[in-house]
C-alpha cells in the first residue's frame, strides 16, 4: 500500500482494507502524522458545530418564507398610450445615445501604460497559470505544482490548485 493511497483513504474513505491500513500506519511515521492531522481537523470541525437558531427564529423565518411563497407573482406590465408612449421612446433613445457616446469615448482613450514589467523565468516543462487583465497585461502568475515525474494523485492536486487559484479571491 502506497502512502498517497493511505492519505487519500484517510481523507475520503473509499473502502481500503482496514487491517492493511492499520499495518501501514503503524510502520509509517509520515502517514501517522497525516492521520493525526486528520483527527485534529475533525476535532476542530466538531468543536465548532453551528448552533441551531432558536425555534422562535425558525418561526419568524417560516412566517417570512410562507408570505413570500404565497404572494402572487407580479408580472411586468407596461400600459402606455399617447404622449406616455412618446415619453418612453424618448427615454429609450436618450439611453441609447448615452451608451453610444460612452462607447466612442472608451474606444478613443489611449491605452494606459503598463505600470511595471517583470521577467518570468520558467523552467521548460513546468506549467504556469497566468491571469490577464484584458489586453493590459499580466496581473499575476503561479507555477503549478507538481514538477515532472510526480504521481497521478499529485497531478489531480495540481489541477485542483489551478481551480482553487482561479475561483478563490481576492486576487493577489
Amino acid at each position: 500500500m502506497r502512502c498517497d493511497e493511505v492519505m487519500r483513504e484517510l481523507s475520503a474513505p473509499g473502502g481500503l482494507d482496514e487491517s492493511s491500513l492499520a499495518e501501514h500506519l503503524s510502520a509509517c511515521p509520515r502517514c501517522m502524522a497525516w492521520s493525526a492531522q486528520v483527527d485534529k481537523l475533525n476535532r476542530v470541525w466538531n468543536a465548532t458545530r453551528p448552533e441551531e437558531p432558536s425555534s422562535s427564529a425558525f418561526d419568524t423565518m417560516w412566517a417570512k418564507t410562507e408570505a413570500m411563497v404565497s404572494e402572487p407573482e407580479i408580472l411586468p406590465f407596461v400600459s402606455a398610450s399617447g404622449w406616455k408612449r412618446w415619453g418612453l421612446a424618448l427615454v429609450t433613445v436618450a439611453q441609447a445615445a448615452v451608451i453610444l457616446i460612452a462607447g466612442m469615448y472608451g474606444l478613443s482613450r489611449p491605452t494606459p501604460a503598463i505600470a511595471s514589467m517583470h521577467d518570468y523565468r520558467v523552467e521548460e516543462g513546468t506549467t504556469l497559470v497566468v491571469r490577464l487583465d484584458g489586453s493590459r497585461g499580466v496581473i499575476s502568475a503561479i507555477e503549478v505544482r507538481p514538477q515532472r515525474g510526480e504521481s497521478d494523485t499529485d497531478m489531480v492536486a495540481a489541477d485542483l490548485d489551478v481551480l482553487n487559484y482561479m475561483e478563490s479571491g481576492p486576487f493577489e
Binding site: 475520503a12 473509499g14 486528520v38 485534529k40 476542530v44
Partner: peptide, 23 residues
C-alpha cells in the same frame, strides 16, 4: 472528482491549522 476535492480540501485546511499556534 468529489473524492479528489475532499483530499485537496483536507490538505489545505490541515496545513492552515498546522500553521496556527495554540491548537
Amino acid at each position: 472528482t468529489v473524492m479528489s476535492r475532499l483530499h485537496y480540501a483536507r490538505q489545505k485546511l490541515q496545513s492552515y491549522l498546522d500553521g496556527v499556534e495554540g491548537i
